[in-house]
């Protein structure tokens, strides 16, 4: 199923938070350029998956393996995973008062460049790129000078996450319920931003509760996560099926080895 062409290979992953096992034998394989949607009921472990992959403190892996571009992801520090190209767009982005967005982003970009053995980006060059990114996500340029997420509305925070993604140019983007709390206009802006970033060397995991986002970001695969494992996989049409029928019928079904990709 997995092979050396995969960007991300998750094998039989078990993980817990505060001694409670949330991920229970999860398998997933993602190739470069693919967009995978992960749907599922509340409490299925959707956000946990994002945190486990990005190495958040307090989330412990009990078994299984994860490889990102051939590297053992689970052995890496949180910051090294980011530098290896993993990006998590947060569902509830936190504020960092007094640290300007621009300062924060430049430090992030520079840390990642340094890890690749590249020189720090010049301030002028970075400002130029950041202004373009602002425009793409429909945020006023003045947001670059404001404290990270400080006093931002819910929608602004989400667009700010997207702006960070545009500037960091990751290989694997995990969008954790990026659509939650967005009105339809904001949703479109976010979706357009994501679509503009789709390319042969960038993959996405789109975690969402609703099918609505997937009308705008067309996934290659849709997986249903229930009780810590993937219980059904299919193409984009599965999302519509779920929208119509809910999750209940799947939760009873046994897990099948229908994984694709």
């Amino acid at each position: 199923m997995s092979n050396t062409n995969s960007l991300l290979t998750i094998k039989d992953l078990y993980a817990s938070v505060e001694d409670k096992q949330i991920i229970k034998g999860l398998n997933l394989d993602i190739k470069p350029g693919e967009v995978h949607a992960i749907m599922g009921p509340n409490g299925a472990g959707k956000s946990t998956l994002g945190y486990v992959l990005s190495g958040r403190d307090g989330y412990s892996v009990d078994g299984g393996s994860v490889a990102l571009a051939g590297q053992d992801l689970l052995e890496m520090e949180t910051e090294d995973r980011a530098r290896a190209g993993l990006f998590l767009a947060f569902q509830y982005p936190v504020e960092i008062p007094g640290v300007s967005n621009l300062e924060f982003l430049k430090a992030s970009v520079d840390a990642q460049r340094e890890a690749r053995g590249e020189e720090a980006i010049t301030s002028a060059e970075f400002l130029k790129e950041a202004k373009i990114a602002c425009k793409q996500v429909d945020l006023p340029v003045s947001f670059l000078k404001r404290g990270v997420n400080e006093g931002f509305s819910g929608g602004e925070k989400k667009r700010n996450e997207l702006m960070q993604m545009l500037l960091l140019k990751p290989k694997l983007c995990i969008l954790d319920e990026t659509d939650s709390g967005l009105d339809i206009d904001a949703l479109q802006v976010v979706a357009e931003g994501v679509n503009s970033q789709r390319s042969a060397d960038r993959s996405f995991i789109v975690v969402t509760h609703y099918q609505r986002l997937l009308d705008y970001i067309k996934p290659d695969f849709v997986h249903v996560l229930s009780d810590g494992k993937i219980v059904k996989s299919g193409d984009a049409s599965l999302a519509h099926e779920l929208e119509a029928q809910g999750y209940a019928w799947l939760q009873k079904a046994p897990a099948e080895d229908e994984l694709e990709g």
């Binding site: 910051e79 998590l88 960092i96 640290v99 924060f104 992030s108």
Partner: peptide, 19 residues
């Protein structure tokens, strides 16, 4: 958040404190 963006923990703390 800081570490997820690639900053090491020391840089993260100093940035938060400086802010």
């Amino acid at each position: 958040l800081c570490r997820q963006r690639g900053l090491d923990p020391e840089k993260a703390v100093s940035m938060i404190v400086n802010g």
